[in-house]
Design a binder for these strands. Structure first.
Length: 141
RNA sequence: GGAACGGGACGAUCGGUCGCUGCGGAAUUUAUUUUCCGUGGAGGAAAGUCCGGACUCCGCAGGGCAGGGCGUCCCGGUGCUGAAUCGGGAGGCGCAAUGUGUAAGCAUUGCGGAUGGAAAGUGCAACAGAAAGAAUACCGCUCCGGCUUGUCCGGAGUAAGGGUGAAAUGGUGGUGUAAGAGACCACCGCCCCGCGAGUAAUCAAGGGGGCAUGGCAAACCCCGCCCGGAGCAAGAUCAAAUAGGGGACGGGAGCGGCCCGCUCACGCAGACGGACUUGUUCCGCUGUACCGUUCCGGGUAGAUCGCGUAGAUAAAUGACCGAAAAUAAAACAGAAUCCGGCUUAUGAUUCCGUUUCGUCA
């Protein structure tokens, strides 16, 4: 049995501002769910590569922040690895969701290195990429 | 006690913070939004897709050929029947051990597995060996002949002995013979018939036969039985915009004809030639093209169902703190229509068996 449902983590120090726990979420309403939405970002957006992932970004008129997570079969042959990669990306993203500018559209594509990278390193990568893309609310982060 | 191999079981505890997802409830919202509470949330293989079935659509008079699959018998499980596969039992075959016997063999016990048919036909068999299929004479044995009298040559007989091989055309003993040989005899084996026993595969009293029929069918083949195709991206329902199809209603152009002559075949009609531009309400295309409104059907995007007491559709189980024998909760691995079988992968947990090593007695 997985032990995950009953375990958890203390977010002892939020990295930016002072959010309550309930804000670090990444629900379905904030996900990209249509093939068309992905294509639009690939065609009109910019990409920012890092060791663990590639980030695509495209600002939108609508205020809602939306993001999608990709782990291709070409990159990860086994289904276990694909699941693992997407979970790591989702986990790192949900911690920065409150800090993103409204209207941000993101696609995060996992690269092979992500499986050997600890979660806090992935979070650092993501923060660095978001700063380069200029979609964070507070400038000093 | 350790290691290796084979098989079976199990496949991961408790407490807490944040987060994801299905369902139910409450509040909230334009909404399928948002919030809270309760509750369910990956595997023994979910995998490979090697088999079988359910389910769905397409096709379909009947019979045969081709092609593919399966293969001892009985009982049972997967809802039933068939097929397939699994479990149990039985038969037969092979191997090993033990007993008995000079031996061949026989009996008992254990183990093994794709276990119909090798006297229907075809095909195949390395190397060795003289000879490998209605085979064969290398050595040897026996007899006969020769002259060069030898460790000789030639001919005939012979499958008892040697040698080769995975396998050499029944075994042992005797009779017999020039030497031998089922040539003949006894026993054993084998083949044919089969009283009788058993649901059956099959076993088998007794009788007959000198003995014929080597192996491979996971080679073709023969015999018996079974088999339509595609697959949940199956398939079903709803259905925007645009384009196109059909119906109804309303509006509604535009174009042509009109007379005379002559010829073919009397008249009508038509063809040919020449003229004419008329009807505020002539005739034909025609209530047609086209325009507008509205309805219908197909159908794309999209949505829903199929779909489940886990269950989505860019696809849910994660991050990580603490506790204990422990630095570490671990290896293989992530449900995608469902069920059953098979195969493969795997752990530092555990049980059994085999082999092997070490120590002690």
């Amino acid at each position: 049995m997985p032990k995950d449902r009953n375990s958890g983590q203390q977010f002892d120090q939020p990295r930016c501002g002072s959010e309550a726990g309930g804000q670090y979420r990444f629900a379905r309403s904030h996900r990209l769910r249509k093939n068309k939405e992905f294509r639009k970002i690939y065609e009109g957006g910019r990409n920012y590569p890092a060791r663990s992932m590639v980030l695509w970004m495209l600002p939108s008129e609508e205020p809602a922040v939306k993001a999608g997570v990709v782990a291709s079969r070409r990159m990860f042959r086994r289904a276990v690895d694909r699941n693992r990669a997407k979970r790591l990306l989702r986990e790192s993203l949900r911690h920065v969701m409150p800090e993103l500018k409204p209207g941000t559209r993101l696609v995060m594509i996992a690269r092979r290195g992500i499986l050997n990278t600890p979660p806090d390193e992935i979070a650092k990568d993501l923060r660095w990429l978001l700063r380069r893309a200029g979609v964070l609310l507070c400038a000093e982060c």
